[in-house]
């Protein structure tokens, strides 16, 4: 009888085999974490220190100083008052509603994640733009990274590093890094061939050509990538709070489990405000960088 079953029901491996398979994978990974976990954790200590220092700096700074700095950044990026007013008003609202501390933690987290994504992602994007073979290898990985449900990243990271800031940071960076890589690659590939030919004709070295022409001309695209990366990192805030990352995510999580509607919405709105601020500031910075395209004074 068992033989005819496969037409109706999918002939899956039986439970025992599957369990054995999963266990084998888990055991192998566990063995890996036991052997290298400590070493990897040590490797991340400087990052943890930096992260803690940065968070403390943001928490320790007086609120008006933080607002002044962010407003200053908004001004340099846009040279307009709208954005500055938006920044000040948003932070005031956040402060008044008692979410200042969590917001600072989240901002610190997002800033560090973005920094890491830039430092790691831009070189990968540059290498990708120079080799079609590397590109065809990296693109599928990026596709998987972007489509994999973000919770899944938490598991191996937690097994390896436990709960806390660093695993949270890693999970966020893995989830958020693809846009920087993709758009760096794209931006460099889109640089005008004739401009590059002229650069070569003047005897530029590969280094001069990369940093003097390709990267500057790709910057608007790279900025768009950074912008998307920040947005994705913000989207990970709640997920990351599940493994102990403090910030706006934790109250949201508590609100979900305890049905605190107002608290959930307020903290959610704070994330939205942060997202809008980060988005507008990076975008107007990107626009200012390509002023030369439109300038006609």
């Amino acid at each position: 009888m068992a033989e005819s079953n496969w037409l109706i029901e999918f002939p899956a491996l039986d439970d025992a085999t599957l369990r054995a398979f999963n266990r084998a994978v888990d055991d192998a990974y566990l063995a890996f974490t036991r052997t290298y976990g400590a070493a990897i954790e040590d490797a991340f200590t400087p990052l943890l220190r930096f992260m803690v220092w940065f968070e403390q700096a943001m928490l320790g700074a007086p609120w008006w100083l933080v607002i002044a700095i962010v407003a200053g950044l908004a001004w340099t990026a846009s040279r307009g008052w709208t954005l500055v007013v938006l920044v000040v008003a948003s932070f005031m609202a956040i402060g008044v509603m008692g979410m200042w501390e969590d917001t600072m933690r989240t901002m610190a987290m997002i800033s560090v994640c973005t920094l890491i994504a830039i430092v790691v992602g831009i070189p990968i994007g540059i290498l990708m733009s120079r080799s079609d073979r590397l590109k065809s290898g990296v693109v599928p990985v990026l596709d998987v990274m972007q489509t994999m449900p973000s919770f899944v990243y938490l598991i191996p990271v937690v097994m390896l590093l436990g709960l806390g800031k660093v695993p949270g940071l890693l999970a966020v960076v893995i989830y958020a890094i693809p846009p920087v890589i993709r758009l760096t690659d794209l931006g460099i590939r889109l640089v005008d061939k004739e401009v590059l030919e002229a650069t070569d004709a003047f005897g530029a070295s590969p280094w001069q050509r990369l940093w003097g022409v390709q990267v500057p001309l790709a910057l608007p695209n790279i900025m768009a990538g950074i912008n998307q990366t920040i947005m994705m990192a913000l989207a990970m805030v709640v997920v990351a709070s599940m493994i102990g990352v403090k910030g706006l995510g934790q109250p949201v999580l508590r609100a979900v489990t305890n049905q605190y509607f107002a608290m959930g919405v307020l903290n959610g709105l704070a994330v939205v405000l942060l997202a809008i601020i980060f988005d507008r500031v990076t975008q107007s910075y990107g626009r200012r960088m390509q002023r030369y395209r439109h300038e006609s004074r």
Binding site: D192, E194, V195, E197, A198, T199, A201, V213, P216, L217, Y292, R293
Partner: peptide
């Protein structure tokens, strides 16, 4: 160059 090929930035 025919189409100038200046550095736009």
């Amino acid at each position: 160059f025919q189409r100038f090929a200046l550095h736009p930035h």
